[in-house]
């Protein structure tokens, strides 16, 4: 352990991170290299070879020719025009794009579609059957588990996954296992109540 054993321990105050705002002014510019220099490598004009694959989305089989760079999220939204699934951050840090892939909840923004040839994908659009809402959809409305509604498709798909995983046994458990879905409006109490209600009905 402690590779730098010989280094002396630097005494210093327990600085608040907020002092970060105050310090550093007037020091040298931080970009030590011309902007985008790393982007120059590789051939900028390189063409992409499209890939063909199949995907079953909400029970419907699609044969798709896609750019390998496309995430499942972009395939859903831009290729299939299934815009119920939302792009909140595109960085795996908000959960708005949650869908089920082969039964498991994942963030579709960080999932390359080309790695999921033959996959079974379920999105918010597929939950309602013959005009009847899924119990969790109903519960989200009944318990006011939403406000603006933008995180809602991801919350509901995550909730479906959470219940299926058996992680909806108590309020605390739901809070823990639903923490991968941010709701900026703060509808969390309703979300927890909705998941608990739907889990109880199962």
């Amino acid at each position: 352990m402690v590779e730098n054993r010989s280094e002396s321990y630097v005494q210093g105050p327990v600085l608040s991170r907020r002092e970060a705002l105050l310090a550093g002014a007037g020091t040298v510019a931080l970009a030590a290299l011309p902007s985008q220099s790393t982007a120059a490598t590789g051939s900028p004009a390189k063409e992409v070879s499209p890939m063909t694959l199949t995907m079953t989305v909400n029970g419907e089989l699609h044969v798709l020719t896609i750019d390998p760079r496309q995430s499942i999220l972009d395939v859903l939204r831009e290729t299939l025009d299934l815009t119920g699934t939302k792009k909140g951050c595109n960085q795996g840090a908000c959960g708005a794009c949650t869908v089920l892939v082969d039964g498991k909840r994942i963030v579709s923004c960080l999932t390359l579609a080309c790695m999921h040839d033959g996959a079974r994908i379920e999105t918010i659009e597929g939950l309602e059957k013959d005009g009847v809402l899924h119990p969790l959809q109903e519960a989200f409305v009944a318990h006011e588990g939403l406000q603006c509604g933008f995180c809602t498709p991801g919350q509901i798909m995550s909730g479906v996954g959470c219940i299926a995983e058996g992680h909806a046994g108590s309020t605390d458990e739901i809070r823990f296992w639903m923490s991968g879905n941010i709701c900026r409006c703060g509808a969390y109490p309703g979300i927890v109540a909705a998941v608990a209600d739907a889990a109880g009905r199962d």
């Binding site: 010989s6 280094e7 630097v10 210093g12 600085l15 608040s16 991170r17 002092e19 310090a23």
Partner: peptide, 14 residues
Amino acid sequence: TQGARPLQHNHFKV
């Protein structure tokens, strides 16, 4: 924390 070398803003970690 032997050998710890805090930076300007992370002394609190020590």
